[in-house]
């Protein structure tokens, strides 16, 4: 009995490894990564010039998203190839179009946000109260699904506008 069950366990594990991708991350990060790839399609960045060669998603702080996003490197976003950049400071942000701020950066959020917004960068995070604290897009997990809150005034300050579709789907919009 036990041997057979052990065999089933091994097979399930083997099947998992066989059909899984290389990244070892929980499901929720895969969904969040897909959000990062999709959200640019629903935002209009007026401040940034359209002449850039790549679409750069930057990540700051400790997050497993980097390895997930790296797999999508080179995909076209708004006709530009995706680049993923891990940043540690403001000076590296100049090439970013979208900045994901990990929960570990909560303490320096009030210095990070003005720096990012002055560069016309879309800010997004999954930390609690991110939109309320002045971030633009707050990914939240509600009833087992990932949804988002938007902060329209934060976006406005960076000359970024959200599409009506994005506004319609948001759980909450802070004006």
């Amino acid at each position: 009995m036990m041997k057979c069950l052990l065999a089933i366990l091994v097979l399930i594990l083997a099947a998992g490894i066989a059909s899984g991708k290389d990244d070892d991350v929980p499901q929720e990060y895969l969904v969040k990564a897909k959000y990062l790839l999709n959200i640019p399609l629903y935002t209009e960045m007026l401040a940034q010039t359209k002449t850039r060669k790549s679409y750069t998603i930057c990540l700051i702080g400790a997050t497993p998203l980097e390895s997930v996003l790296a797999a999508s490197s080179g995909k076209l976003i708004k006709s530009r190839p995706l680049a993923v950049l891990k940043v540690t400071d403001f000076s590296q942000m100049d090439s970013c179009q979208l900045l994901f701020i990990a929960s570990s950066e909560r303490n320096r959020l009030q210095t990070l946000l003005p720096e990012a917004h002055s560069r016309g960068i879309v800010t997004i995070s999954d930390m609690r109260d991110f939109a309320r604290m002045g971030g633009m897009i707050n990914l939240l997990t509600v009833n087992g699904r990932i949804v988002f809150d938007l902060n329209r005034s934060a976006a406005g300050s960076a000359s970024i506008s959200f599409s009506t579709h994005l506004l319609k789907l948001a759980r909450d919009v802070i004006n």
Binding site: P26, Q27, V31, Y35, S72, V142, G144, R145, I146, H165
Partner: peptide
């Protein structure tokens, strides 16, 4: 899968189940 720019893709994302 290729990234889709269709307007349905956000809705699809919002319906994916994650464990909470």
């Amino acid at each position: 899968e290729e990234m889709q720019a269709s307007p349905e893709s956000l809705e699809q994302l919002m319906s994916l189940e994650v464990t909470t």
